[in-house]
Amino acid sequence: MSTFSPPSPLLTVSAPPHAHCGRTTRGLMAETLFALAPAAIMAVLVFGLPALRVMALSCAVAVICETLCARAMAGTPAVDDLNALVIGLLFAFLLPASAPWWLVAAGSATSVVLGKMVFGGLGGSPLCAPLVGWAVCKLSWKGAMDYDLSMLSSSLTSPLAQLKHLGPQAVAGISLQDLLLGQQLGGLGAVQVAALLAGGAYLLIRGRLRPHIPLAFLAGTFLTALIYFYLDPAACAPPLFHLLAGGAVLGAFFLAPDCSSSPVGHVPMIVFGLLAGCLVVVIRVYGVYPDGVPFAILLAELLTPLVDRIRPRPLGVG
């Protein structure tokens, strides 16, 4: 046999297509982090260093958990796609700024392990990862997760809890501007409404986020609240209050559109958004929890496989 000498130059062999739009998973996550940055900064301005502590700890735990899981699953750790950071930060956004370290660590670890890695990693989970961690913490440690109880030293109040316990008169005096600027108790990032809106707008303009789910979500919340308000203005809060209080905006732009757990078609996305948005108000009105956003999204996500069956007729079929 003659010795093999590779022809020069060596070509790269690859599968088609041989061109690409240039947008990668890592880029998507990086831009999401960038879009979350204003809210993170606002959280530190409003709640001080404790908020920074919670966010940093949550992100660190998320990254460590993902690396360990990937090792255990004998896969290649993909932490460099930045998804763990996004999960960690979003989970932190749902916590009160006073959350103790063990709560942050446990929740962040649950988010990554139960919300993502047990399903095989990115894209496999039927539920939005940070919400899984949130739900586990909320059900396990009620007191520590309660925004009013855990933030007794703060002069701010949680408008949704007031609405729940004291009725709409109690919140009538809250100005929408205060709500926009984060002058309310709630998840430390979730209440930075103006900053989150800016981040969401950035993702929409960059084309990193399709408008269907966020807009349908906000429309669903608004319309349902409007119906309740119209039926009984004395017993219900006005629709704009529902949009700006609590985590509705965070849910609309960052939690509900979570890739792996939201539907993919045009119509399914709109149906999903409307459904989740509508559930937010229904839970707020009838539920035992003041804020319905996380549970509304989790519930709607359970319906994703069903909603995703709304498909146009494939080319040349039927």
Binding site: S14, A15, H20, G22, T24, T25, L28, A78, G120, G121, L122, G123, G124, R210, C259, S260, S261, S262, P263, V264, G265, M269
Partner: peptide, 12 residues
Amino acid sequence: PPVADALCLNCG
């Protein structure tokens, strides 16, 4: 960016 044996994120 090179083709990768990566999981689908279900981004749609």
